[in-house]
Design a protein around this nucleic acid. Sequence first.
DNA 1: ATACACCTTTACGTAACGTCAATGTCAACA
DNA 2: TGTTGACATTGACGTTACGTAAAGGTGTAT
Lengths: 254, 254
Amino acid sequence: MEYTVQKLGKLAGVSTRTLRYYDEIGILKPARINASGYRIYGQKEVDRLQQILFYKELGVSLDRIREIVTSPSFDGAKALREHHKKLLEKREQLDLLIANVEKTIALTEGRISMTDKEKFEGFKQRLLDDNEKKYGREVREKYGEDAVEKSYNKIKNMTKEEYDELTKLSGEMTKTLGEAFKTGDPAGDLAQRAADLHRQWLTFYWDSYSKEAHAGLAQMYVDDERFRAYYDKEQPGTAEFLRDAILIYTGMNK
Amino acid sequence: MEYTVQKLGKLAGVSTRTLRYYDEIGILKPARINASGYRIYGQKEVDRLQQILFYKELGVSLDRIREIVTSPSFDGAKALREHHKKLLEKREQLDLLIANVEKTIALTEGRISMTDKEKFEGFKQRLLDDNEKKYGREVREKYGEDAVEKSYNKIKNMTKEEYDELTKLSGEMTKTLGEAFKTGDPAGDLAQRAADLHRQWLTFYWDSYSKEAHAGLAQMYVDDERFRAYYDKEQPGTAEFLRDAILIYTGMNK
DNA sequence: ATACACCTTTACGTAACGTCAATGTCAACA
DNA sequence: TGTTGACATTGACGTTACGTAAAGGTGTAT
């Protein structure tokens, strides 16, 4: 089957301008140009347009789409399976948003109360997405899919009060750690207090606490530049100091 | 609770630029400006931003959003119920798209075959939306929610072959009707043939056919300017002529 | 006193098309 | 056969919803 711009446009539900634009930027070139200069599209182009629209639906930029579909290693079948997964994720987010609207309706009816933070549940996907872009993949690969998933969900579902407490805890921990670092003694009172605050903070993210995991995380803070950079920002050496304090706190220091 | 641009931005997951822009175009003005010119947002603004983001999620332009939320008759609670409905619709469309991806995967595995038309199932929402914008609401109000819903679904699920046949049928009908009109006789052979083609065309959209409904639709063609304009486009009076032919065809003309 | 993270306005940049304008092509009808 | 009307073409400028500097004021902690 062969299509002109208009025919293909109607088939796929896009404008002729869009098809010309896609030609212009090189993501969908017609199979051939006929004698009068008309764009003629064939089977391969139909399938490619379908792929392009899938990516668009997922919010991928045309620039990225070009990189993807023009790549010689592009595997259409594999891409489809990824689309499928992403769409399921999108549906989950939509469900969250729907739940939020229902909650807000209940709010206006005075049945429940809702914090400001809760009011924006479900819109945050983009923020999480960005995080995901930066670190998500690596962290997932390194520390396991499940843990990341769970901690994201936990953050998403926190109330404002919980969130405030978490922020406060985090602040206290950082402050105590900074002071403890100056004493130079990871076994001292201040350092052990910091380690305890760290444990409290951790339990916000983790379902179950274990000394082993806590100590493992502490070691990670030293091994992973990102985390180390964060803790060493004010005073270099803080990451190692925290690790030592936690190893003592958990009794894993032998 | 009071918020500066950054605080509110973090809360809602939008940039500070976005908040300034919303101020600039007048869809979300701060509650007050403090002594140093800082934007300070309060409770009302938080709720309004939530509404704005709901509308944005549904793809409404900021221009429309302004019209909506600044309208003195704006009813937040009612808007929320509409959001809820729209989001459910969006989920349905997403499900359609997911089904399509699954189908396409099966296609690449050679398990089934798929027409070009089917390949774009689920992307068409926008087209349907546009139609909806133009006529949807009025038609729904006049001729019942269910019928419209069903005919949309039928179109969405048609195969290419069915669609082609439908288009062909529609063309034949128009042509025959045009010729019949020139004879001036709604009881004549040509006119009755046009009425029969019209019935065939109708059964593509309707689950069950009845003479009464057919005759009723014919009358509607005359009463509703939109339909009349369509049929009268080439030759004024065609809508009435078609109605008469159908009344005779169905035997409802006495 | 200086750093630093906030805030401000002004202004130009960008993505993905929409929307003319000016012109060429092709099948159908008078 | 000429004309009409629906198609196609290439510019080229407009639009939406911000992103991204630039240049500068504010607040508070060290």
